[in-house]
Simulated assay, not measured.
Amino acid sequence: MVKTLSGSLWRGEKKLKFFFLCFVLFYWAGVTTEAFAKKQGPQPDVKVGERLFYGLIPTGEGSNSCVSCHAMYPADSMNWNPSAIEMAKVAAEMDLATFKEHLLTPTGAMREKVHVKYQLDDEQLFHLQGYLAELSDTGVKEQPISINKLLIFLLLGGLMTLALVDIFFTKKIPYKAVHVLIIIFGISFQLKIVAHEMIDLGRSQDYMPDQPIKFSHKVHAGDNKIDCLYCHSNADEGKSAGLPSAGLCMNCHQVVRNGSNSGQFEIAKVVDAYENNKDIEWVRIHNLPDHVFFSHAQHVNVGKRECQECHGEVENMHILKQENDLSMGWCLDCHKKTNVDFLDNDYYKTFEALHKDLAEGVRDSIQAADIGANDCMKCHH
């Protein structure tokens, strides 16, 4: 009896010590965390900063939300303002005083005009910068996808399955013609989707990616009348048209540092690449399969073709896109209908029989296909 009682007391004492130890540990952890937080200083409320960025909290009478200019996702039309992620990366590297000056007393005509209505106190600026710093670390979430052909394909498959189940098993709908129409329509539409997807493999018509610098062909080739070969000088005598180096861009931008549409931000990227000897990683738009040979020199120099015939009216494009599908059929059709300038081009002197036909009136024109442009080995060799 005494032994049992002493054992119970000993176990009770152990439990008491255990709870006391836990209390001490939790208290120490709380004090340490509080001390660390005080040492670190106040932390920004990222949610408040996000609401400020999206304009859910007023930022000044008549002012626009940040996201209305600094978009999260790419658009089909040129947005001359830096994207949200670009601004986030810049803001994350600033201290609060610099960020305040950058936002409320900006330099540059474009920012002065937009930012003049912003009225934010230091606390709001602190939260806003905190949100931008987090956005810089996490990046932008993937844009939600909309209903596409795959979902329609699967929906039709589901409807046809239900129709077949009702025909053979449930037999709820007495009119079999309804099931037959659903199955015929579903199979026809699915075959059409599959055929078009197979045809479009490797094609990127209307491809219009975001570029590391907002470069406008309309401003350069259209408004300022810069010749295509000034920037793409290799097109006249090379396989590829080539891309201009930052040094070539600086021929103009050594002086022009403030764009009429984009302000200073985009041109500053060119200057930075030039001064720090960095490559500008442009995203390729027009890209033929590896098994296809294409020479710009053959078309631009020999064939005297204009850039717009393949690339569209680039002088009217702010954002460059792939105008044509660049399929084999598109190339062959062009070769069949394009007249070759035989008389004023020394390249074609060797085609004596065709020159004779022109002189005798047997032919009134020569197409590219007539001189072997559509031979398989011209492009696939």
Results as ranks from 00 to 15, higher is better:
Ser295Leu: 09
Lys278Thr: 07
Arg284Asp: 15
Ala268Pro: 00
Gln254His: 08
Glu266Ala: 06
Trp282Gly: 08
Gln254Glu: 11
Gly259Pro: 01
Lys278Cys: 05
Cys252Gly: 08
Asp290Thr: 00
Asn277Lys: 13
Ala273Arg: 03
Gln264Asp: 01
Arg284Thr: 14
Gln264Met: 08
Ala268Met: 06
Asn251Cys: 04
Lys269Arg: 14
Val283Lys: 07
Glu281Tyr: 03
Phe293His: 13
Glu281Val: 11
Asn277Glu: 15
Val292Ile: 13
Gly263Ala: 04
Val300Lys: 08
Asn251Lys: 14
Tyr274Gln: 11
Gln254Asn: 11
Val292Asp: 02
Ser262Tyr: 03
Lys278Ile: 11
Asp290Ile: 00
Leu288Gly: 10
Ala297Cys: 03
Trp282Val: 10
Asn258Thr: 13
Val300Pro: 00
Gln254Lys: 12
Asp279Lys: 09
Val255Lys: 11
Lys278Met: 12
Gly259Tyr: 01
Glu281Thr: 01
Ile280Ser: 04
Ile285Ala: 05
Asn261Arg: 11
Gln264Pro: 01
Pro289Val: 10
Val292Met: 14
Asp272Ser: 12
Glu266Asn: 08
Leu288Ser: 09
Val292Gly: 00
Ser295Ala: 12
Asn251Leu: 13
Val270Ser: 08
Lys269Asn: 12
Ala297Glu: 11
Pro289Ala: 06
Asp272Val: 05
Asn277Thr: 09
Gly263Arg: 01
Phe265Met: 04
Val255His: 05
